[in-house]
Nucleic acid binder design. Structure first.
Length: 423
RNA sequence: UCCUCGAUAGCUCAAUGGUAGAGCACCCGGCUGUUAACCGGGUGGUUGUAGGUUCGAGUCCUACUCGAGGAGCCA
């Protein structure tokens, strides 16, 4: 007798198999009983007689089922199992999560169990596929994965709040971006990317924010602004088309409308910050030049397009010190935010970096950042500096967009938010 | 940090200032094909905390705690 995964059962009709999993539902009609068993690959109904099992088969009881696979037109997966023997390997009295509705606080407090639900499992599989497709695309296009440190001595961008730690008596911080290190690695390896956790102690409490999130950060030597955008849109297209290909079942489980995703093809539209302001004025949402775009503005802009849209050439004063000003128009930078459709906001932020030593020092001073902290970063401009560009993709926001979720907290196994560090 | 809303059974929610209830979960019983099965019965409460008003507070008032949504900031 072979052990089979539930997703493979349709290839075993007529055979005796072993299925190991957890009970999600128990139903009975007199002498005939039905349990629904899930094993992480799918769910299957198992049928047995009244007196064959003595132990209670409550929700999430772990079971090993020995039985015969039978084709059955009534089954959603085409087969069910006629049970010969059913062994309880782990009881589950009073499982807290029921088939009825639950509130956010309760579910997040039981996240260690909530991940067992089909919807959550599907989301995590899609997350895995997004990671796989993103890394695959970059690996296939000459990028070298090279990860920056997570414990860092200083901020990449002075303004953002950092989580401080005690590093053997010295103050240190959890990384809020690996970008500066990625610039160093790009000078060594050409095209590089990192993929890892980043931390922001911002007191942001919205559907788009976590205090710990994963970021994909490519950095490319000899790549200027336009080519940077090209890499971003090709990466996003590869991710979305790859997920549509690999995750049809999971997208169906969570009820995602895939029509908008199928439209995500290059080239993505590009509008400048100036054009964005014009469009917003037309929409009755005027923004003064020099002010940043808020979440409602981003949503309104994104709604005008059927695929992600780049907003480029933001005012220099709004952006980080390392972004390259446009030589033809220094009051704006060669930076772009990629806004996702359907109100998911900024999913990628990128720019060409300043490669001129003097200009970079000038910008540091304008931001009142000390040269001493950035001495190694300035070395990159002292020794063989070249134009280079990079971007950061927020994984959880991409997952939220592709899965159509209301909130990023469900896009990661154990979300860390402003008010929650448990479980 | 600011704005808004909320907290009653394990869960989701009811309850004119006047006897705290329902559905689900769980337990017992019934049903030989159920699909969030169904039918009958049962267990289950310091109404977030502290104070106040009142003959009487889940309900009204004050403070606090916790949570949710949003703003700012960001990916």
């Amino acid at each position: 007798m072979t052990t089979a995964s539930i997703s493979d059962l349709r290839h075993h009709v007529g055979e005796a198999v072993i299925v190991q999993g957890w009970v999600t539902h128990f139903r009975s009609s007199g002498r005939i009983h039905f349990i629904i068993v899930r094993d992480g690959t799918g769910v299957v109904q198992c049928v047995f007689k009244h007196d064959e099992v003595q132990e209670p088969l409550t929700t999430e009881t772990a079971v090993t089922v020995y039985g015969e696979v039978r084709a059955d037109a009534r089954s959603p997966i085409g087969v069910e199992i006629a049970v010969h023997q059913l062994v309880v390997t782990g009881q589950s009295p009073d499982y807290p999560i029921t088939p009825k509705e639950h509130g956010t606080d309760f579910l997040m407090g039981h996240r260690h169990l909530w991940v067992r639900s089909p919807r959550q499992a599907a989301i995590l599989r899609i997350r895995a596929a997004i990671i796989r497709k993103a890394r695959g695309f970059l690996d296939d296009h000459g990028f070298t994965v090279a990860d920056p440190p997570i414990i860092t001595p200083a901020a990449a961008e002075g303004s953002t709040t950092l989580f401080g730690i005690d590093y053997f008596g010295e103050p240190a911080f959890l990384s809020q971006s690996g970008q500066l290190y990625m610039e160093a690695l790009a000078m060594a390896l050409g095209k590089v990317y990192s993929f890892g956790p980043t931390f922001r102690a911002e007191k942001s409490k919205t559907r788009r924010h976590l205090t710990e999130f994963w970021m994909l950060e490519p950095e490319m030597a000899f790549v200027e602004f336009e080519e940077n955008l090209s890499w971003q849109e090709r990466l996003m297209e590869a991710i979305v088309s790859g997920v549509l290909q690999d995750c049809a079942d999971e997208l169906a489980v969570i009820g995602r409308d895939v029509v908008p995703l199928a439209r995500v093809k290059t080239p993505f539209p590009r509008i400048t910050y100036d054009e964005a302001l014009e469009r917003l004025a037309t929409l009755g949402m005027p923004v003064a030049w020099g002010e940043d775009l808020g979440a409602p503005h981003e949503t309104a802009l994104a709604e005008q397009f059927d695929r992600p849209v780049f907003v480029t050439h933001y005012p220099t004063a709004l952006k980080a010190f390392y972004m390259q000003p446009d030589p033809k128009r220094p009051e704006v930078v060669l930076a772009a935010d990629l806004l996702a459709p359907e109100g998911y906001g900024e999913i990628v932020g990128g720019s060409q970096r300043i490669h001129d030593l003097e200009l970079l020092q000038q910008r540091l001073h304008q931001h009142q950042l000390p040269d001493s902290v950035y001495s190694w970063y300035l070395d990159l401009r002292r020794y063989g500096s070249v134009p280079h560009s990079g971007f950061g993709m927020g994984l959880e926001r991409v997952v939220a967009w592709i899965t159509g979720l209301e909130h990023v907290r469900e896009t990661t196994p154990f979300a860390r938010t402003l008010n929650r560090v448990w479980p």
